[in-house]
């Protein structure tokens, strides 16, 4: 910073100010989670008395109460819905992206626009008709009621990401393989898929985060404890246990623990993956 060099005092002040700003922001962002975990160990009365301090007695049983209430089932449901959605979504998006990049067919531009256009439409717009479809086909209250719309609403962005990545793969690779007598399916599987691994990981992570946190479909299309995902499960949990703050907070803490732990261990991959697509 050249300007900084000419006014050392000002630069120092600047620096202190920036440190102060960022430290404050970091505390604001992180402290609520620390507060959540600390208070999860308290009883309701302790919390009314002192929401700041460390628990006087660490009430580990809050966590077992919360766990027994059904958090485990919700987490499992979320896992099933998320993994199935990601797998189906990536498969379809990769196929579509491959065709859009390497194959020559009519109405290609129009088809690509049609796929991308889906990104504009919020789920609210399709909610009520979708709800009727789910009810009439018997999909209501099954995992599929969550997986299928989640795939559809995730496809536009995922296809966009993978397509952008595939355009960077030199076409000569495919031409050479064609010379060797390989078909499109084989080129797709043996040339493109291995090369696309990094973007598949990123796109998969983005899609997984989206589905894991999805709310409105889960609120509308399922009802049973046996299929409720963690977002909705936590809601019903919160209503039923609102009187007992400690247990409620233990439940909230448990529900985010898996994702929080993964994030803290693999934060570089997380941030990198989730922000890919920021530049074309």
């Amino acid at each position: 910073m050249a300007a900084a060099r000419s006014f050392p005092a000002l630069a120092l002040l600047n620096r202190i100010l920036l440190w102060a700003v960022f430290l404050t922001l970091a505390v604001i962002c992180v402290y609520p989670m620390i507060w959540l975990f600390l208070n999860a160990f308290k009883t309701t009365n302790d919390m009314f008395a002192a929401t700041w301090g460390l628990p006087k007695v660490w009430h580990w049983e809050n966590f077992s109460t919360a766990w027994n209430y059904g958090i485990s089932r919700y987490l499992l449901n979320s896992l099933v819905v998320t993994s199935a959605t990601v797998v189906i979504e990536l498969s379809l998006a990769t196929m579509a992206a491959y065709a859009l990049v390497v194959l020559n067919f009519r109405a290609k531009a129009a088809i690509y626009t049609l796929i991308l256009g889906g990104a504009i439409l919020p789920p609210e717009v399709s909610l009520i008709p979708l709800f009727r479809v789910m009810a009439e086909t018997g999909l209501y209250n099954t995992y599929f009621a969550l997986i299928l719309p989640n795939v559809a609403f995730g496809l536009p962005f995922t296809t966009f990401l993978i397509r952008a990545y595939m355009t960077g793969i030199p076409g000569e690779l495919r031409e050479a393989a064609l010379m060797d007598g390989a078909g499109e399916a084989r080129i797709f599987r043996e040339v493109y898929l291995p090369l696309c691994r990094p973007i598949l990981a990123s796109a998969g992570l983005i899609s997984a985060m989206r589905v894991w946190n999805e709310f409105i479909f889960a609120l509308t299309f399922v009802e049973s404890e046996s299929v409720k995902t963690v977002t909705i499960g936590v809601m019903s949990f919160a209503v039923a246990l609102r009187a007992d703050w400690g247990v409620l907070m233990a439940g909230l803490a448990l529900s985010i623990l898996p994702i929080l732990a993964t994030f803290l261990v693999m934060q570089r991959q997380f941030v990198g993956g989730l922000t890919s697509g920021a530049v074309k």
Partner: peptide, 15 residues
């Protein structure tokens, strides 16, 4: 792709 298929099959099985 084989992996993907295997996972899908597994998921459908659970479902």
């Amino acid at each position: 792709m084989k992996h993907l298929l295997a996972v899908t099959a597994l998921a459908t099985g659970i479902l």
